[in-house]
Amino acid sequence: MVQALIVHKDRLPQPQKMHQAAQYVRMSTDYQKYSIENQAVVIAAYAELHKLTIVRTYRDEGESGLKIENRTGLTELIDDVQSGRIEFGHLLVFDVSRWGRFQDVDESAHYEFICRKAGVKVAYCAEQFDNDGSLLSSIVKNIKRVMAAEFSQDRFDKLDAHRKWVNFHLENANRLREAFEDVGRRATLDQSTECLRIDNAVNICFRLAKWRKYGRQPPRWAMVGRVALQKGWVVALRMGENNEAVLDYLLLPSASLSFKSHVFSFSEDTRAAYKIERFQTFEALSRSLVERV
């Protein structure tokens, strides 16, 4: 008799569940727009507007949206919904892409369907449409899922291309190391910093100078300062239009670099002001550097 008076969380009356919500938040990058905090603020505002009380948070931080593996928050959410261990009737999500940027766009739709089938209403708090099951909302969601998948694929392709050119430039670093050793110099390459140290005294760091074009302005090239450069030289592989091929090779003293927000940018017009020398081939740059160091 006493047990009959206990209200279990997974057996809450339906009207009570419909005033309670869970939130799912995910961030895989350092983009401020998608920070956990920003998502929570938008979701909290939506909950207050619709008189919902958030009683549960499912969270995945620092996890890729390409696969469900290692995403304990989403996995736990789906398990709870399918088993009926839920005390909420709403699931609040920042936007459609928070389910994931799956290459199979039906996968994120599948997780929403699981929630809906269990009687949980899914709301996308930052989207400009109501997830009301209408034809329009279905079309918009599918478009956004496709966009999320394409965004992920585009980033993957760019990252893959970047790694290819970094590895290519590190091969140049090894060639320069051999050139110094051939003339009796001691040279060691630290691949973690992408820098070559000569006779434990002079540093030569290797960077990519990526092509950028803004409107009608002349093209510019940018180098990212991931780590503080030590005194010495910088060898830059300058990319051509759309960063699809090598344009030439640049040599400059590290003192010439002034990083703003970790990026050093220059144009062909400002190249001389930064004391940046241009070489058509890496062999020509290598010979010049071995002679002057």
Rank of each mutant, 00 (worst) to 15 (best):
I36D: 07
W233K: 06
E171M: 11
P13F: 05
K213S: 08
E181C: 06
E244S: 14
A222T: 15
A273M: 09
C205T: 06
Q217Y: 13
T270N: 08
I114C: 01
G215Q: 03
V93Y: 06
N174E: 06
W221C: 04
Q230M: 08
R26G: 06
P218N: 07
F259W: 02
D269K: 15
E61I: 10
Q16E: 15
G133R: 03
V235D: 04
Y124D: 02
R186F: 12
A21N: 07
E244Q: 14
V120R: 02
G84V: 02
A149Q: 00
G84S: 01
V183S: 05
Q20G: 07
K33W: 00
S138A: 10
W165A: 01
C195T: 15
I139K: 03
S134N: 00
R212E: 14
E194Y: 07
V224N: 10
V7G: 00
E63M: 14
A109D: 06
N131P: 09
R163C: 01
T29L: 00
V246R: 12
A284C: 04
G119R: 06
I68D: 08
V7A: 03
Y214Q: 14
A45T: 13
F180T: 07
M223T: 08
E127S: 06
W99H: 00
N242R: 13
D132S: 02
S192L: 08
S64I: 07
E63P: 06
Q230H: 06
A22C: 01
H110S: 09
W221Q: 08
G73W: 02
W165R: 14
H90G: 12
L170E: 09
Q16V: 14
Y31W: 11
K164G: 11
Y249P: 01
A236P: 14
S137I: 01
V41D: 12
V263K: 10
F113D: 11
M147S: 09
Q14A: 13
A284Q: 10
M239W: 03
S108I: 00
L92S: 07
V42H: 08
I143T: 00
T193Q: 02
L77Y: 04
A4E: 12
K213D: 09
H50Y: 14
F113I: 13
L92N: 05
N70E: 13
Q16T: 11
S64W: 01
E171W: 07
V227L: 08
G240I: 03
E63D: 09
G65L: 05
R85E: 12
D104R: 07
M1A: 11
V55M: 02
L189Q: 00
A21L: 06
T57Q: 01
S138N: 08
I36W: 09
Q153T: 14
S256G: 02
I86D: 05
P218K: 10
A148L: 01
E244D: 11
D60H: 14
Q20L: 11
P218T: 09
K9P: 03
S134I: 02
R163D: 07
S288D: 13
T72H: 10
A209H: 00
Q39H: 03
N243W: 05
K210I: 04
E181L: 12
V183G: 03
K141R: 09
G84C: 07
A273R: 02
T75A: 05
T188A: 10
R145G: 00
K117Y: 09
P253H: 13
C205V: 04
A4N: 12
V122A: 00
F168V: 07
I43V: 02
R98Q: 12
S35D: 03
D154C: 11
